[in-house]
Design a binder for these strands. Sequence first.
DNA 1: CTACGGATTTTCT
DNA 2: GAAAATCCGTAGT
Length: 216
Amino acid sequence: MGNWIQYYVEVIILGLTLAKDFYDRDTLTVARELLGKNLVNETSGFRVSGRIVEVEAYMGPLDKAAHSYNFRRTERVEAMYGEAGTVYVFFIYGMHYCFNVVTNGINMPEAVLIRALEPLEGLDTMSHNRFGKSLEELSKRERINLTNGPSKLCSALGISKSYNMKSLVNSELHIEDGLKEAISIKTSKRIGIDYAEEAKDYPWRFFIDGNKYVSK
DNA sequence: CTACGGATTTTCT
DNA sequence: GAAAATCCGTAGT
């Protein structure tokens, strides 16, 4: 009887995992539709996950804010030239990682930066990864700061450079469809790209209106 | 609550 | 040699 329950649970979870064709579409569409989905890392044998509440689109060749602007192709940005569903992780400010989902076709170097999550599963693991102590020991400020920024969520979910260039499809690090519920999506210019000239004001940041885990 | 400056090292020019 | 798709602690409302 327990095995049957396990079986149905696995079928449901496998059915919820996003396949390559989800990512292999227009980048702005994928960015908006990623809101409300669940980013899951079960590399450690148990699930650590969060609901995606904030993203930014980076539109490759046309976008001065993108690492792949004008088809620039260095070792760091190589993942963006991969097929849809490839992971692009880069190191920034000497100490942080950022996690991106590569979208659209091969050799079209566009991606979506995941900027914030609402913690769902494995909160105590997140707490140890981020602050080296248990969930109960966190201050109110630390509790909200578990996953409300692009590098914070990488730390919380244990995402580092070792995932760069891997695929999200059939992987322990993947994205699952969330429960269907109405969300209101807000749009703004992107954060932290003031150097990007005309591209700095493009409205390519999307977030769930009113969600308290959206970055500040 | 907001505002500021320092941390720290890969990556690119 | 300079910049960077950020975060944190501290100081001040």
